[in-house]
Write a protein that binds this DNA or RNA. Sequence first.
DNA 1: CTCTTTTTTTTCGAGCCTCGAAAAAAATAA
DNA 2: TTATTTTTTTCGAGGCTCGAAAAAAAAGAG
Lengths: 411, 411
Amino acid sequence: MILGVRHDDLRKRNRAMVIAAVRRDGQPSRTDLVSRTGLSHSTISAISSDLIAEGVLRPVKTGENEVVRRGRPQVSLGLEPKAATVLTVVLLLNTLSATVFDYAGQVVAQRRERLATLDAARDDLVGAVAQMIEAVLEDAGRTPADVMRMTMAVQGITDSGARAMLWTPITPESDIPFADILEKRFGFPVTVQNDCNMIAVALRARDPERYRDNFVTLLLSNGIGMGLVLRGELFTGAYSSGGEFGHMIHRPGGALCRCGRHGCIEAYAGNYAILREAAGRSDQTAADADVDPETMLKLANDARAGDGPARDAFRRAGEAIGYGLGSLFALIDPAPVAIVGPGTLAFDVMEPSIRDAIAQTAGGQHDAVISFDLETDEMPLILEGCARRALEAVDNELFAPGYIATMQATS
Amino acid sequence: MILGVRHDDLRKRNRAMVIAAVRRDGQPSRTDLVSRTGLSHSTISAISSDLIAEGVLRPVKTGENEVVRRGRPQVSLGLEPKAATVLTVVLLLNTLSATVFDYAGQVVAQRRERLATLDAARDDLVGAVAQMIEAVLEDAGRTPADVMRMTMAVQGITDSGARAMLWTPITPESDIPFADILEKRFGFPVTVQNDCNMIAVALRARDPERYRDNFVTLLLSNGIGMGLVLRGELFTGAYSSGGEFGHMIHRPGGALCRCGRHGCIEAYAGNYAILREAAGRSDQTAADADVDPETMLKLANDARAGDGPARDAFRRAGEAIGYGLGSLFALIDPAPVAIVGPGTLAFDVMEPSIRDAIAQTAGGQHDAVISFDLETDEMPLILEGCARRALEAVDNELFAPGYIATMQATS
DNA sequence: CTCTTTTTTTTCGAGCCTCGAAAAAAATAA
DNA sequence: TTATTTTTTTCGAGGCTCGAAAAAAAAGAG
């Protein structure tokens, strides 16, 4: 159905714009907001005084960084930290962490623990998450009723409604509806997101100059994850979180993948695949659940030292990634790529074969556009992305209700 | 920049909604429009009487199909044919056609001619197009000044701004900026679109139930083209029309493709590739520029008759398409696929191997969702898509200016 | 220390837009 | 001819944004 725009939606949208501008720009003055949004002084004045009265924004003392100029000084507006509390949970292989953020995006409390996810039963996983949520909320001096939203990031595939973890390499369990379970238990809204997608959100927030409309994030670890931003929007599949770059087919009927199929990119470029190849094992050998970083560093050093099985393994890994990126670029055109995770430590060994492979594909046409940025530690990015997602949801749903609904109904 | 919504944008948007609803629904009454758009009777009344006064819409006599009911009868609103004239040009291998449509989408005049595109020099192509435009406009009794928009569809890659044909299999010439040239010559706005994208637009318009948010169109011919609709929007690359499914890599370093690279899907599934394989030629043999339909039909019949080189060739073609779709589905999740073009005549021979290959990929998980619809004649679809594009552009830009700009600036 | 200048922010009335309710219009049913 | 039903238009109320003017808050000049 095509929805018309009702009159009050206008104010809601413009409120959302103002909040979004404040979140992005840090501490803009009303005058800054006028130029950012194209709205008039009168409108900005009205909206911002409303938002201040409601406790969403607050005037902040400008630091010494402000140039002393003639005239009435600008008053910067900032997000009121007390306006909301959001919660993030990150569940990765053998690691669980939970963080409480205030509305301004500052960490209030954080917990992190080792958890043997591979051996944990379904209820153990859910129980561990719930327990950690309770603990970190207590650390933060908040109750579940204070939390306006929670975003959970998991390794693996989630559903497109962001309600459940459909499949994950971190445990044999599948289809765990974390959102339903946690919402029922705690009463706040929960979404479940793919870790790589959160990395993409974080990069976009961190460096909007470089990562704006179209870019790719690749998480190189035991598996290969991808986050994709197209036309400025996080790309997800129709039913799932999508973007399963690691399971695009590199060689039909080829090496055995962790997912049980054959010839996936991951079966050549995942850590387990590189190790398997370098160790001279058959490419039909079952995958290791995890490979420790030291082993990978040693392999990378072997590869750097000269020709041999390690160098071959990385070359094949790079080839798989390169052809995969080339195929992806045939579909969406080349875009900047951010490489994230432990795999960055061996990226120099793979980069030549990646570039060679891309050059042999249709996506290699404009290869000047293709740049790789490296970021070894994925954890802060995932956390940042989750927090951002949760906070933006609060921005839209709570302080400008109807905004999202109206916009989506447009198409 | 984040753009706020100004007050007059509201009316523009709602006008656009009303026009779009009329175009989609055929001849809705004002009451229908109220339920379609969610706007009030008062608003619909005001907007529609404006549009009628401006000559965009007109009240139409309802046919006999209307049930006789008590109460004031509904007055249906239709598009006023005289409100605008649009032009479409379709340039394919050895074929050029031009059609004039009225604002209601009816054909006013049409021309079609054979043109040896492979041998035509750059200026010949441009000249032939320009000449045909002049001729068809004269047939229609219109002048260039009457034309509010033209959409041109070409085989091959266009730029994302829809201004130029970047590369095409129909002639060795490349980078022909048709939009600039024709705009300069005729004075009306021109866009240049990829043919498969127009097929997707047409299918969406024809059957919105089936083809709505996510679907794929594959054009099987001498080359392999793709149109992709994601989240209800036509998908194009960042720099080009994108969606070069045929040039995703199927077998690294494999068969020689028409594009000069090796191992592309097209190098296994294009007509020339199937013929090459069935005839027992090396897969490094240069591609035929075109293969006539009779030859392909004969090959398909050979394949149906039993095992042999023809059956193998189609099996390999199906495998390439299947693995390609599987890789695509790993990224975007499975979606309905419409198969269009001469290749549909041999689709029964390929379908088993396509489905087998998909089943071996990550995208094969939910294979119940994957359905194939066939449509042999692509020409009417391309034409319909072009007309639709041009008319919708007129709807938005002319009768509700600012609508598009505002919406895009939102993100 | 006071007055002027400059810049930011708020206030105020005008002009639109949408909405709901009531009225008007146009048909059928009694 | 009158009552009923349904569609469409009219009209006043309430909101929103805008531009212009006013107010506020600082530095600079004398």
